Simulated scan of single mutants.
Amino acid sequence: MADDVLMYGPAGWEGPPQRYGPAARVAVLSDLHANIPALDAVLAEPDVAAADLVVLCGDLTWGPQPQETYERIAALGERVLCVRGNGDRFASWLAATADATATARQSWITAQHSPEAIAFLNRVPFGVVVEIDGLGPVHFCHGSPRSDHELVTPGTPAERFAELSASLDVGVLVTGHSHLQFAREVGGLRSVNPGSVGLPYHTGQPGTAHWALLGPDVQLRTTHYDVADAVARAHRAGDPGAEQYAETLLSPPDPASVVVDAETRIFVN
């Protein structure tokens, strides 16, 4: 790892990650990217509705419908645990600084959040730990346990994985950020990514949201939704990035290429 990499770990107000559980079943959704049709379809899944907890692994509202996404999350009440993604961190920072160098889309997305939504993002912690039946303690974060913008992929070498997970006292690490769905064993730990609900990188049918169900094992799941509706809503909302957003939904990047790029760059905001 380069010595000059700026790490985005826990905020100054945070201590060690809070611990929750025990829980029999935990639904894990990541990288929502404010895709309401995809989010609604996954939340309607019987196994998600019946889960003891729903953990959201970051990049919650960075997309075309941020306020509506915040309202969906708030409606879940105490059943939901969130961790902070790099997009969530950036939205909070932009709202506080009104950065003059922000792009049109960055400014637009930030402006779509109500004060309550920004206050919510400001409170989202860097990571949480949940005791899950059959799996023991599971650590959830967005990028890695040391930075929300570090990419963990199916191709992450064992050496780097050992470095980024060295502080953990768990048997399972769940990350997001890469938009790739996978589960693998690395150096005695299980490395899991539920994939992205809102913008998955995959080779399957467009309009497929990815998520996971934990307990007593790890189940990687998919849910189909109306992708044409998601594209139409992005345009109707006035999202300056609607064209690129639609292209990613309709022609997702190839996972193999994503892994090669991610393992070359490692840290991506």
Rank of each mutant, 00 (worst) to 15 (best):
P10L: 09
Q18H: 15
A24F: 02
R25K: 12
H33Q: 14
A34Y: 04
N35A: 08
I36Y: 05
A41V: 06
D47V: 11
D47K: 11
A51C: 11
D59T: 02
G63V: 05
I73G: 03
A74M: 14
A74Q: 15
A75F: 10
V80F: 14
R84K: 14
N86G: 11
G87M: 05
S92Q: 07
S92C: 08
W108L: 04
T110H: 02
A111N: 03
S114N: 15
S114W: 13
F120S: 05
F126L: 10
V129Q: 03
E131V: 06
I132S: 01
D133C: 12
G136C: 09
P137F: 09
F140C: 00
F140S: 00
F140W: 01
H142E: 00
T156D: 02
G171S: 09
Q181L: 00
E185N: 11
G188H: 05
R190H: 05
G195C: 00
G198K: 01
T203W: 04
Q205I: 12
G207L: 10
A209K: 01
A212W: 06
P216M: 06
V231S: 09
A234V: 08
G238T: 07
D239K: 02
G241F: 08
Q244H: 14
Y245Q: 01
L249Q: 05
L249Y: 00
D254H: 13
P255R: 06
A256C: 08
V258G: 04
V259L: 08
V260L: 09
N269M: 14
